[in-house]
Design a protein around this nucleic acid. Structure first.
Lengths: 169, 169
DNA sequence: AACGCAATTGCAAATCATTTGCATTATAAA
DNA sequence: TTTATAATGCAAATGATTTGCAATTGCGTT
């Protein structure tokens, strides 16, 4: 059902609605300067192992939203001794560090993407599984407004559009 | 983690942002007139069994978003011979009929609500699991606008706000 | 009211994604 | 190096949901 299996899922770039195009990432001073997770791990007493290095490299170098099995396969291609358990454990570790984000799109499996970029939401192509990132200040503002009017503070949210490429435009 | 277990999850009413308050449900001519699913089932050659009647009654009478286990427990209280399998099968059947909506909020289990009301999104209280329904035309419009600008038609979407009740306001 | 039979059910076993126990291995501090 | 112990691989355990199958039941027909 829907998109599944080994579909390629390229991250198609950050889009901004109503106004700006995505720019400076979170805490990094210079653009396209990746945070040094290995240093951060060492700092927090977390060991830098071969599986972790490989998985981190995979996450850093990819631009799509792979699930655990896909990461496992890509990692296996580099070092066939890596286990799926380690992939899962590492994803949990990295998520805890804030190095990656976990998404529960339709389809049952969790999908991951490296953190560090600006906040964005996702539009998922229901035919191909492709994920397109976008961001809208206006929507974010409306969400805040709604939560506030209901007496709540938003801790996090989830906005996913599931769509199909338009035939004629 | 988060809200879980047997938390009570009252549906706190439909809220409309920016403008109107929810009113006339979808296809029903008179307010609070529930569509006759039994008739519809009979029409499509689907048998009306005791378990189905009970489950339908539970879904119709509740105002929260129970998961399969909760529905199973409520149904068991009426007829202890009903099985969890039947609950799952019936939920799938009803979903296919369009009688209920399935939600995959955080927490692992699917949660259901009877269909028939107006479209709405959800704000989930991360402490209690309470679900508050809301609707915003402006957000819907912006979603359409974004999808269109990306070359897509929205098939469906998912907007969930996870928040905490504000202390002082 | 009783038939007949396919639709439905309950139960147990099977899936699927993810997690965990445990003995073994390997990182990094001394 | 030596060592303490964090991390790994593997297999078994989970938890939600699904499915195979024999027994049951709804319901149009007699």
């Amino acid at each position: 059902m829907g998109f599944s299996g080994g579909t390629r899922v390229p991250r198609q770039g950050i889009f901004a609605t109503g106004c700006h195009l995505a720019h400076s990432p979170g805490m990094n001073q210079h653009a396209n300067h990746k945070p040094d997770y290995e240093r951060e791990m060492r700092r927090s007493g977390i060991r830098i192992t071969r599986p972790r290095k490989i998985i981190l490299q995979i996450l850093t170098e990819t631009d799509d939203h792979p699930d655990a099995m896909e990461i496992f396969q890509r990692a296996s291609a580099i070092d066939s001794s890596i286990s799926l358990s380690t992939v899962y454990r590492t994803m949990k570790l990295l998520e805890g560090m804030g190095a990656i984000h976990r998404h529960a799109f339709e389809g049952g499996r969790a999908r991951f993407e490296q953190a560090g970029g600006e906040h964005h939401d996702h539009l998922i192509d229901i035919d191909t599984g492709d994920v397109i990132e976008f961001h809208s200040r206006r929507i974010e503002a409306l969400q805040e407004e709604i939560a506030r009017s209901l007496g709540y503070d938003i801790v996090h949210h989830r906005l996913e559009l599931y769509g199909r490429k338009r035939k004629k435009g």
